[in-house]
């Protein structure tokens, strides 16, 4: 069994506890994330995903239930230590850019953690190289595209060499190119290090990249499993406000047209092969 990195046990959180009409933003949710995994958290807007993110890094504490990080309970004492082990990137590229230039922004977390000057310079350089933003060291944020800003945010997050990278809809405000840049950056980081990635998203492609998907609905954990298991649920997911992979949509439409297929396929290759074997290669 792999080492457990984050675990939530029956966690409930309500924003205004005293207001009885308020339903919990996160209701009795449990899950565990293991070292080196890529976990995607999906769900409609308002389903509690960001609240989960805040609970995982101690911006919020649950009213009931427990959050454990690296096997230790997350509390006031372990908070700052935990945060230095967990890089986080948010949705809005503009609102998390603290530094005046790219390199200042990447250095921000290092400064906060008292990293000595020489090492800072080295780490800033290395982090920017990893996200392919070295040519923009001195650029100011308003001269960068959304995708570039998010890559800088990732560089800032990994500069402390954390174990976990937590992305809260980091791609949702980006154009397709920006999204691809960010996703390939994350993939490459995973290939080079044993970084654990938790990505909150409603982008299908991003969810399909994950090892495991946790699906939220109205504050509850609705389902958990491998992406292909989750998306097999078909219409159920559509009803909950999510997309299905393209190949699956087409499979379903083909079936409606009376074309026989062995299954509703997740990937385009499978679908093409199925069409080939069942209709031509006889």
């Amino acid at each position: 069994m792999k080492r457990e990195i984050i675990s939530l046990q029956e966690v409930t959180f309500t924003y205004a506890e005293e207001d009885k009409s308020m339903r919990p933003a996160v209701n009795n949710v449990s899950y565990t994330v293991y070292e080196g995994e890529w976990v995607a958290i999906v769900g409609h807007n308002g389903s509690g995903k960001s609240t989960l993110a805040r609970l995982m890094n101690g911006l919020l504490f649950p009213q009931t239930g427990k959050v454990r990080v690296f096997g230790e309970p997350l509390d006031e004492q372990s908070l700052w230590d935990t945060r230095s082990q967990m890089g986080m990137v948010f949705q809005n590229p503009d609102n998390q850019f603290v530094g005046a230039t790219v390199q200042d922004d990447v250095a921000f977390a290092l400064e906060n953690n008292g990293v000595p000057f020489e090492e800072m310079v080295e780490r800033v350089k290395r982090s920017l190289l990893k996200v392919k933003m070295s040519d923009f060291m001195n650029s100011e944020p308003h001269h960068l595209s959304g995708g570039q800003k998010q890559r800088v945010a990732i560089a800032g997050a990994i500069a402390l060499q954390p174990k976990i990278l937590l992305l809260d809809e980091a791609t949702s405000m980006l154009d397709p190119q920006g999204r691809d840049e960010v996703l390939s950056t994350v993939q490459q980081l995973r290939a080079e290090t044993d970084l654990t990635v938790i990505s909150i998203t409603h982008d299908l492609e991003e969810a399909l990249l994950a090892d495991r998907v946790i699906m939220m609905n109205q504050g509850n954990k609705y389902a958990e499993g491998k992406p292909e298991e989750i998306f097999q649920r078909g219409q159920e997911l559509v009803d909950l406000g999510l997309d299905l992979p393209f190949a699956m949509n087409v499979s379903r439409l083909l079936k409606k047209q009376g074309v026989t297929l062995v299954a509703e396929h997740m990937s385009e290759e499978e679908l093409v092969n199925d069409l080939w074997t069942s209709h031509f290669n006889k």
Partner: peptide, 28 residues
Amino acid sequence: FQKKVEQMMEKKLPVLCLTEEMLAEELA
């Protein structure tokens, strides 16, 4: 996707399929 299928079949569909629905219909 249409292009992938066409490549496999070595034949072309009569039109470009602009939507998933159109694709399913033309393929059927």
